[in-house]
Design a binder for these strands. Structure first.
Length: 313
DNA sequence: AACAGGCACAACCGCAAACCC
DNA sequence: TGGGTTTGCGGTTGTGCCTGT
């Protein structure tokens, strides 16, 4: 009959933490550690807080070397690059930004970066197809259409598609030297040279194939079936030709800071954004329709078709 | 000065994976 | 090996502050 609650909600305090609670928690952990059991921790300290709440407070606020606010352009780029490639896996993204927490990155994306990058969305929201609008109003249990195999798009999926479209059009080939990503799996065996399983860390190169169009030209296009097919083909690493590879950095910079903006520092190495990712410790098996993109599936193709109708591309 | 709306951030909730016995 | 417990994560909500009217 369901799971037991992690704490007694009747006796547990909720809401903002007081300075006293903060210092009690901080002092205890600095002195004794967490003891490997967050659930028991508040009882030991004498805090009327849920263990989960204590853990969150420590990780997001009290832990040493936490940075708040003032994300740098480099951090912006890393967040955007990783969001495009792996979606809303905030813990992984935050792991690339020392001192940042997943909650921080998530909030920053939702309140600032997303608006900055996707703010150029046309007034097409109200032009959404009736089917899309109707899907929104369905109760949860009816939110899938099994008969047609169609699923309503998640906000995350829409955002990532739109970001793709803004960065490059036709659809970009984004290449990740990361065997965990779905479109890499087919060629993971071929690319062992670039991924040494004896190392615990490798670098991910986020690159975008150049097609000679600036992002300012990206809005008013209709994707044909052929374009969608070629997009799927482009997304495959086997498409091969990297001769015109450009860094995603420049496109992101333009979106983030306006046309003609210059990269203010940043981890650019040989035209390729270098992001250190501990892919080996990263759970390679975790995938979801929302969080991982396989540009070779018919589902993804239908997503793009839906996108083009929604955003009147 | 008062109010409303928007925004940013902290915190909570529920789920699934990982862990432990 | 299976079931219970704990942890980690992402989505969502609540709240206080700021800004415009």
């Amino acid at each position: 009959m369901g799971r037991a609650p992690c704490c007694d909600k009747a006796t547990v305090k909720k809401g903002p933490w007081s300075p006293e609670e903060d210092s009690m928690l901080k002092n205890y952990i600095e002195e004794h550690g967490t003891g490997g059991n967050w659930i028991a921790l508040p009882h030991k300290i004498g805090l009327k807080r849920c263990g989960k709440s204590c853990r969150l407070r420590w990780l997001n606020y009290l832990r040493p070397n936490i940075k708040h606010g003032d994300f740098t352009p480099e951090e912006d780029s890393i967040i955007c690059s990783l969001y495009i490639s792996i979606g809303s896996r905030w813990s992984i993204i935050a792991a690339q930004l020392p001192g940042r927490t997943d909650n921080d990155v998530k909030n920053y994306w939702n309140t600032k970066l997303k608006k900055r990058l996707l703010g150029r969305r046309k007034d097409g929201q109200h032009r959404r197809s009736q089917s899309a609008a109707a899907a929104d109003e369905l109760p949860d249990g009816d939110s899938t259409n099994d008969a047609g195999g169609e699923r309503p798009l998640s906000a995350s999926a829409m955002e990532r598609i739109q970001l793709y479209m803004q960065l490059q059009n036709p659809l970009p080939a984004v290449q990740h030297h990361n065997p965990a990503l779905p479109w890499q799996q087919n060629t993971a065996a071929q690319s062992n040279d670039s991924f040494n399983s004896n190392t615990t860390s490798t670098s991910m190169n986020v690159t975008v194939a150049e097609h000679g169009q600036s992002s300012s030209q990206l809005s008013d296009h209709t994707l044909t079936g052929r374009q969608l097919e070629s997009a799927a083909a482009m997304a495959s690493p086997s498409s091969g030709d990297n001769s015109n590879v450009v860094t995603i950095e420049a496109e992101l910079q333009e979106l983030l800071y306006g046309e003609g903006s210059q990269m203010r520092g940043g981890a650019v190495d040989g035209g390729v954004l270098q992001v250190d990712v501990d892919w080996w410790s990263y759970d390679q098996g975790k995938q979801s329709p929302v969080n991982s993109w396989d540009f070779t599936t018919t589902e993804t193709t239908s997503v793009f078709q839906d996108y083009t109708s929604v955003y009147d591309i």
